[in-house]
Simulated assay, not measured.
Amino acid sequence: MTNGYPFLEKNFLISRPDRIGDVVLSTHLPVNIKAHFPESKVYMLLREYTRDIYVNNPYVDGIIIFDQKEGIFSLASKFRDLRITHALMLLPNERINYALALAGVKYRIGSGFKPFHLITNVKSVYRRGYDRELNEGQYCSDMLRKLGIPVNSEQSVIYLSDEEKKEVIKIRKELLGDCRTLTGVHYSSGGSAPNMPPEEYLLLAEHLKKMSSTKVVFTDNVSSDKIKEAGFTFINENLPLRKSILNFAALDFLVSASTGTMHIAGALGVKTIGLFCPLPACKPSLWGTLGNKARYILPDESYCSRRCPGDPKKCDFAGEGGIDHVRVSNVLREELLS
């Protein structure tokens, strides 16, 4: 018996077929598993477009791509071939749940209460009843604790190879020019969070451009003609995620709404300035970055009672007490001078 389990082989599957920010907030799990079970194997089950977040992670033994069309029996066969013994289902998924049960995975931990968890006798971690505010990444940690695995670190980390680190140095040198700091501005959010309109981000960039000490670049994958015409560069335009990750790693600061982009930058140690809504489902205590230096900008307390549209995704922070380029610029100026 080792560490409370009556068998030597321990092969973990962490299932997170989710969006970028959610996946980044799970990156601390493998290192904690390996710290407790050094001889174990850890596999990630991810969507294709998020796999680059875990590339070069020294604590992950393999990445399985989740195909939305793949059948239960095919998935179960993969899990059996890998001899999975423990599964953490960070995002409830009925097909994955049944495939794990069919594969004979003994220790299965799920998130929340779902009827298919009950049918397959999954142990669940519940979020209701908490009297303290936890980040999404910290909720993920509770699954490890459910298995008796101590959590020593909850810092999000994206790992770079030695060659990639050299490339980051080269990228930073080329982008910086004669400036001392490199600031990324990310104007889009994919409709996933409240956000300033693109025009405010352009005003922010023009305001920052007047500060000779910092170089401003945009980090969106899709560019804006209006912003381009103003003379700003989109360093990640049409690039694959891993290439974009290297560009993010070259930054000193990133300004953005609460998006996956913010979490990528935070996991690379970049200082982030995030625009947030105070509603319970959107607030920074739940969706902020873990491990880096971060500043969060929220509207004034009275703003939401006066201007809230009822749907956070429709909020543009406009009006008195909201968030605009001047307010964001003042926060970034404080950081640059500190």
Rank of each mutant, 00 (worst) to 15 (best):
F113Q: 14
V31G: 08
E39M: 14
D67P: 07
S74L: 10
P58Q: 03
Y98G: 07
R80K: 15
A76V: 11
H117S: 07
F113A: 14
I33V: 03
F116S: 09
L29N: 00
V60P: 03
A99E: 04
L100I: 01
F37A: 02
F37N: 04
G104E: 11
R83S: 10
I65L: 11
D81Y: 13
H36C: 13
S40Q: 09
D52I: 06
I64E: 10
N56T: 10
D52E: 10
L29R: 02
P30A: 01
G71T: 09
A103N: 01
S77M: 10
I84F: 04
A99L: 08
I84A: 04
T85V: 13
N97K: 11
I63R: 02
I84Y: 04
K41M: 09
V42T: 05
H28A: 08
L118K: 15
G112A: 08
L75N: 03
K34Q: 05
I96W: 07
D81L: 14
P58H: 03
T27K: 11
D61V: 04
T27Q: 12
P58F: 04
R51K: 15
P115C: 07
A35Y: 06
K34V: 08
K106Q: 15
L82T: 06
K69C: 11
H36M: 12
I65G: 07
L102M: 14
F73W: 14
V24M: 11
A76H: 02
P38F: 02
E39D: 15
I96N: 08
K34R: 11
K69W: 09
A87T: 01
Y54P: 06
D67R: 14
N32C: 05
G112I: 05
D61N: 09
D52W: 07
S40P: 08
R108Y: 06
E70F: 07
I64S: 11
I63V: 08
D52H: 06
M44C: 04
G112Q: 06
F79S: 05
L91E: 12
I72C: 13
P115F: 10
T85A: 09
L118P: 10
R95H: 05
N57R: 04
A101M: 09
S77R: 15
A76K: 04
G110F: 07
P30V: 00
L29D: 01
H117F: 15
V55I: 11
L46D: 00
R83C: 15
G104A: 07
